[in-house]
């Protein structure tokens, strides 16, 4: 038994080397580490694909690290890749706060860092930040919903599924929603009902169920992220409220991201509008800025780049659907 254990130990110790034999050739190639918090939504999957493919096409060696939604693990991973001598780091942070801490670590090490789509909660550290103009995009989508509500000739009960407010994306989207609410005060039966989601489908499901039970007349619902549409459907369908536009029980529905599910729902007629972030353009923006910093020897580039986005609605669906990344992925399939 003891000998067997020794054999096991030797085998286990050898596993990493065997895995490593898959080929790592050290050369003068530019190395960029891509450290992401997880890939739990279509948006992050598409972002991951866009970034890694674009980097590899550019001849850059990509080191990928998945923190599995653990901010501390992501910090350790970033420190490890810095030790490996990477030329730059791109992160999708767990939240805006950890983006600041990690950016400071990169600043101290003199490694340029890019923060993709989830911006730092303050600007105390230098980084290239690519972020959607969430407020404007959300406002465009909710504006379309408000115009549809006006056509009903009655007041509606608004609700918003709020993201993690530690994430500036969620704050911007909430603000865009409220800009429209304040613009048309005569349209609402009451102040909006806020449904916390923490960017977590389980939290969103529990809170949406409670909100609908407490306020069964909700008929104007904006979700701060498209990945929650399956959750919304699972709550509304049993109540007979998952209906297409034009149906008397249709809940005016809007979202933001522009994912594949949103594209399908728009085409099927369940969704009124969604704000679109251009994930491919954002990937290109961050790579261009980071590569430029590396080439210029700029160790602490500090630049905020905005994706202005747009709203894809039932009104412009035919003309603009192929401008939305989710529809492109859908078409590819």
């Amino acid at each position: 038994m003891k000998r067997l254990c020794f054999v096991f130990i030797i085998v286990l110790l050898a596993v990493p080397f065997a895995l490593m034999a898959n080929g790592q050739s050290e050369d003068a190639q530019t190395k960029i580490a891509f450290c992401f918090q997880d890939l739990e939504t279509e948006f992050w999957v598409a972002g991951h694909k866009a970034i890694t493919e674009t980097l590899r096409e550019a001849g850059v060696k990509v080191i990928e690290k998945n923190a599995n939604e653990d901010a501390n693990r992501q910090l350790e991973q970033v420190k490890d890749v810095i030790t490996q001598g990477v030329d730059g780091v791109i992160i999708i942070p767990q939240d805006g706060e950890s983006a600041v801490t990690i950016s400071k670590v990169c600043n101290e090490a003199g490694v340029p860092i890019g923060v993709f789509n989830r911006p730092p909660s303050d600007k105390s550290a230098d980084s290239v930040v690519v972020v959607a103009n969430n407020e404007v995009i959300a406002e465009s989508a909710v504006e379309h919903m408000a115009q549809e509500a006006k056509k009903l000739g009655r007041k509606v009960t608004p609700a918003i599924m709020v993201g993690d407010l530690g994430d500036p994306n969620a704050v911007g989207r909430r603000k865009g929603f409220y800009n429209v609410i304040e613009k048309y005060p005569e349209l609402w039966t009451q102040d909006p009902i806020e449904i916390p989601t923490k960017w977590d489908a389980n939290v969103a499901l529990a809170n949406l169920q409670s909100a609908i039970q407490a306020n069964p007349d909700i008929d104007f619902l904006f979700t701060s992220s498209d990945f929650l549409f399956p959750v919304i459907k699972s709550v509304l369908a049993p109540l007979g409220k998952w209906q297409k536009t034009g149906h008397e029980d249709h809940v005016l529905l809007g979202g933001l991201d522009g994912d594949k599910t949103a594209c399908e729902l728009l085409h099927q007629g369940y969704l009124d509008a969604t704000g679109v972030q251009d994930v491919f353009a954002e990937a290109e923006m961050i790579l261009d800025a980071l590569m430029k910093a590396i080439e210029n020897g700029n160790e602490t580039p500090n630049e905020w780049l905005y994706d202005e986005g747009f709203a894809l609605t039932q009104a412009n669906l035919e003309e603009r659907d192929m401008d939305m990344w989710g529809c492109i992925l859908r078409a590819e399939e």
């Binding site: 990493p16 895995l19 790592q24 080191i63 990928e64 599995n68 350790e76 991973q77 490890d80 890749v81």
Partner: peptide
């Protein structure tokens, strides 16, 4: 294991 760049 991190340095070996294995998937998580």
């Amino acid at each position: 294991l991190n340095h070996l760049n294995l998937p998580f």
